[in-house]
Amino acid sequence: MLEARLSQTLLLKKVVDALKEIIAQGTLDCSDNGLELQSMDNSHVSLVALSLASDCFEKFHCDRNVSLGLDLKSLGKVLKCANSDDAVTIKAVDRPEKITLSFESDGKERTADYELKLLNLDQDHMEIPKKDYTCYIQLPSSEFARICRDMSMFDESLTIACSSKGIRFSAKGDLGTANIQLNAGTAMDVSIEVQEPVTQSFAGRYLNTFTKATPLADRVKLYLSEERPLLVEYPIEDYGHIRYYLAPKVNE
């Protein structure tokens, strides 16, 4: 059985907000090590992977691996019933048909329990090879969100060009063109490591969806290589991450 307690529901709210616009449903795999979820969006253009280590939780007990098929909209609705600073305990039995979420206010003046039905989902797990990327950028997550938002006014397609000179985001559409260049520096705290320059185009609406994870982390990491999907990683303190993978657009 699984029993996992977080001292604040806020983290779970942020995680579900970061997932629910890219995937409607997903299977949360629970083990002694913690929680993991991996799922592609319906169009098979992007993939999201969540990892939360057991030590993220105030209490974590999982004596047998259990998979929870979750409808994320429904989970989001349940989480709306809780205050951000309520403690939350997630419970599931072995081979569960439902999970229980219990919320406790500070001092346990108010407790609320919700049962959520689980789904039987087909699990397509992708094998992602662990190769090094040729470009690695770290920047404030709010800046990345701003760039994605501003660029999407111009075109659906956003080009990222990374070289030793810096990283350049550009879009060209009916309105005109937009170019944003970021250079490595300490004021905004941008770091850029480039082994080989990369230029790739991506669908802006997916990047904008990834930025729903902005409240989870102050910094975001971008990993690029020619002919490979982009990896956008939001660390969750020292406990894990949300990673988004996005297939590039290619010229015919």
Partner: peptide, 14 residues
């Protein structure tokens, strides 16, 4: 115009 590639072009299902 560039076409959107599929993620399964890069990664395989296990």
């Amino acid at each position: 115009t560039p076409i959107q590639n599929d993620l399964t072009e890069y990664y395989s299902l296990v």
